[in-house]
Design a protein around this nucleic acid. Structure first.
Lengths: 149, 149
DNA sequence: GAATACGTAACAAATTCGGTTACAAATATA
DNA sequence: TATATTTGTAACCGAATTTGTTACGTATTC
């Protein structure tokens, strides 16, 4: 799987910590251990999803579009995993023409996987970016930016 | 994502329907709309996981290693998704050395994603291959192999 | 011994992903 | 206005993954 979900969460947690101060893609990239352009790509996606806002030019950067308590991991997941409906990709390439078993199998599996996906969504929806930030603070050693205390 | 999970489930449902009669990779491939070697590769994985048994030679093929009611979708998922623990891959490549935020973020996300993954596992564990076969029968038009009635 | 069928290695084409460079557009500031 | 900063995005590369395919050895039945 790709790392977009994790990096996006990383970015959002960082923005939550910045508390409204615009953060540049360079800083975010440095923190997440990736390239600024990768960050900008991700931020573009997050912006389309309405999770962040960006400002060009000197002193610009990205800020959260709404309180961190109002952004769930499900929001993030939906934003960056454009293939979310295919989490369990069911399409077995070329379904056999014989009674169209392939299509039927697809329908059946979708129905059976549904509860699994729904369960995961529910669990993701229960966690906010604010919580992520809070957890991060707990785990960070003292003296680090974002550390509690 | 890859189609292995879906194809593997397809194969197992077919084997459940065959009720102990060995099924060749050619027949399975035809049903799943793929190549016999692809099936054999998958079957190899399922065999290592103890879900099926194979017999070489004329009249050979693959059969379920235990009752279809005792094989859950979670078993299948675990067997074919060797990257299961990375369902939510957290590693953001090169964590920044600064306070090792990358590692901390990884720990934090793993802790927060845990419940989501667990919820999905639980839901997958609740569905057996026998149920898949049964659902398939319901969806198949009458007169097709496996159709109910 | 011949036919059947699996087991597996090897390879190619397609896709995906992350990183990188490059450059236009926007914005603050001197 | 001129310059520095920063985003937005296209383009490309290399690595990895996935699927399909061929090839061939091995096991089993007849």
């Amino acid at each position: 799987m790709n790392t977009r979900f994790a990096v996006a969460t990383h970015i959002l947690a960082y923005l939550a910590h910045a508390e409204g101060q615009p953060v540049s893609s360079e800083v975010l990239a440095s923190s997440a251990g990736t390239h600024p352009v990768v960050v900008r790509r991700l931020v573009s996606t997050l912006r389309e999803a309405g999770l962040v806002q960006s400002q060009r030019g000197a002193g610009g950067g990205t800020v959260l579009a709404r309180p961190a308590t109002d952004i769930s991991l499900l929001d993030v997941f939906r934003a960056v995993q454009e293939t979310e409906p295919d989490l369990f990709q069911v399409n077995s390439t070329n379904p056999n023409t014989h009674c169209d078993l392939g299509r039927v199998m697809q329908e059946t599996l979708e129905g059976l996987f549904g509860p699994a996906i729904e369960a995961m969504r529910t669990a993701l929806a229960a966690v906010s970016v604010a919580q992520v930030k809070q957890e991060l603070g707990k785990h960070l050693p003292q003296g680090c930016p974002g550390a509690s205390g």
